[in-house]
């Protein structure tokens, strides 16, 4: 089977696609040209570095280095999810809570996949899958934080009334919490509904590109779908149940909104 070949010359030609975006930006006065150039340079540098790092780690095949790389992915994903929390007060404890959500959701999901025997304990399988799981958990946790913030702002009066009636902060926040977790999980559920019909996801496309039989490739995609449902639900639930408490002070009163 003919393998996909992307050499430097074909990459340079493909750069024309970026030029299309830049021409549109200039013509339509979108002022995005600088941003496009910056993002492209960043993506090329990041991907080149990570390409060489992964090559080195895969060749070395060292368990500790693999664990370290997975932890680095989770730390980075946690930091990005934490930054998406509009109610973050720049306390280390809040970052730790985000890290906990990402750590548990990523490693519980990864552990279950390893236990199922679908993955081999080798860096070339563990590291990409960890990235995929942590990335999706990061998006879900970020969505959960944003939904919590907008709901606490929109439904402030309702929560005040519940507190005034003598509700615990958890009871007063429960509908908001549930709605936020739902919001965080919705894209994954929607994606699961349309997978294969609307888009052929990255994992499956990658395998097909690499010459794997599509019927085998879909098995992996089904595995990924299960995995993403698990990680987004775990991440959103853990993050949500920690984050709602930061909208209240020690006197169980709603803190002033910004």
């Amino acid at each position: 089977m003919k393998q996909l070949v992307v050499n430097n010359a074909s990459l340079a030609l493909a750069f024309m696609l970026v030029l299309v975006a830049m021409i549109i930006s200039t013509k339509e006065k979108l002022h995005l040209a600088k941003d496009i150039i910056y993002s492209i340079i960043r993506a090329v540098i990041q991907l080149t570095i990570i390409g060489y790092v992964l090559k080195y780690i895969f060749q070395l095949n060292n368990a500790w280095l693999t664990i370290l790389m997975c932890l680095l992915i989770v730390v980075n994903a946690s930091w990005n999810a934490y930054k998406r929390n509009p109610n973050a007060h720049h306390h280390f404890r809040e970052y730790l809570e985000t890290f906990l959500a990402l750590f548990i959701s990523t490693f519980v999901t990864l552990g279950l996949i390893i236990l199922s025997g679908s993955l081999k304990l080798i860096p070339s399988q563990i590291i990409p899958i960890t990235g995929m799981i942590a990335g999706n958990s990061m998006v879900a946790v970020g969505l959960c934080y944003r939904a919590l913030n907008s709901q606490f702002r929109d439904q402030r009066q309702q929560i005040l009334e519940k507190l005034a009636l003598g509700a615990e902060i958890k009871t007063a926040s429960l509908p908001i919490l549930r709605e936020s977790i739902k919001t965080a999980m919705q894209p994954t559920i929607d994606q699961a509904k349309t997978v294969g019909l609307v888009n052929l996801p990255g994992m499956m496309s990658g395998l097909i590109f690499a010459g794997v039989d599509p019927v085998r490739a879909i098995r992996y995609q089904i595995l990924i779908t299960f995995m993403l449902l698990s990680t987004t639900s775990l991440g959103a639930i853990i993050a949500g149940y920690q984050a709602y408490r930061h909208y209240f002070n020690s006197q169980q009163q709603l803190t002033e909104s910004d």
């Binding site: 009066q157 507190l163 003598g166 169980q252």
Partner: peptide, 11 residues
């Protein structure tokens, strides 16, 4: 919460 059940505020 128990206090607020005893001293109840109506908006």
């Amino acid at each position: 919460p128990k206090y607020r059940q005893q001293v109840s505020y109506c908006f």
